[in-house]
C-alpha cells in the first residue's frame, strides 16, 4: 500500500514537472497529440484502472487507450477516437460487470460553462460509440469538467490538443 502511494506520488511529481516545464518557453518542438496515453497521467490514472488481470478482452491493449482527443470546438470522434472506443466497447461488452466513467474536458478557449457543455457533448460522443458497440448503459457514467482540469498547462495548440479530451476511467 505504501509502495502504491509512492508510485502514484512519483506520477504526480513528474506531472507537476511537466506542468512547470511547459509553462515556460521551451525551444523543443511541441509533441503531436498522442494517439495513446502513455506518459500522460490523465485523471483517474491513479485509480488502479486497467491494472488488473484475468478479466479478458484485450486489457493490455486498453492500457494505452485511456483518452480520446478532439478538434477545437468539436465533439466529433476522429478515426483514432473511434478505434479507442471500439477497443473499450469490445472489452466492456465482454465484461458486463465492469463500469467506466467518461470524463469530458475542453481546452481553455471559450467560456467556462460553455466548455462544460462541450466536454459533456464529447463524453456523450464516446458513450454513443460504446453503446453502439454493445455496451450496456448501466456500465457507463458521464461527467464533464469543461476546462477546469487541464493536463497540459501551456497556452498553445500543443497544450490545447492534449486538454481537448475524454478520459475513460475504469471504476
Amino acid at each position: 500500500m505504501f509502495k502504491q502511494i509512492l508510485v502514484s506520488s512519483v506520477v504526480v511529481a513528474s506531472l507537476a514537472l511537466t506542468a512547470c516545464a511547459s509553462s515556460g518557453k521551451k525551444n523543443a518542438p511541441p509533441p503531436p497529440p498522442p494517439v495513446n496515453n502513455s506518459g500522460m497521467a490523465g485523471y483517474g490514472a491513479s485509480d488502479s484502472s486497467v491494472s488488473g488481470t484475468g478479466l479478458g478482452g484485450g486489457l493490455a491493449d486498453l492500457a494505452n487507450k485511456k483518452t480520446v482527443y478532439f478538434e477545437y470546438d468539436s465533439s466529433d470522434l476522429s478515426a483514432e477516437g473511434q478505434g479507442v472506443a471500439a477497443a473499450w466497447a469490445k472489452y466492456l461488452a465482454a465484461n458486463p460487470s465492469v463500469r467506466v466513467r467518461l470524463e469530458g474536458n475542453a481546452d481553455e478557449r471559450g467560456t467556462r460553462e460553455y466548455n462544460v457543455g462541450l466536454g459533456e457533448h464529447r463524453a456523450n460522443a464516446v458513450q454513443a460509440a460504446l453503446a453502439s458497440g454493445g455496451v450496456s448503459a448501466s456500465q457507463i457514467s458521464v461527467v464533464s469538467y469543461g476546462e477546469e482540469r487541464p493536463v497540459a498547462a501551456g497556452h498553445d495548440e500543443a497544450a490545447y490538443a492534449l486538454n481537448r479530451r475524454v478520459d475513460i476511467v475504469q471504476q
Binding site: V12, L15, A16, A19, Y43, S46, R149, P150, V151
Partner: peptide, 9 residues
C-alpha cells in the same frame, strides 16, 4: 482561485 495541475489541483 486554483493551484496545481492534475490530481494535485
Amino acid at each position: 482561485t486554483s493551484a496545481g495541475l492534475g490530481p494535485t489541483r
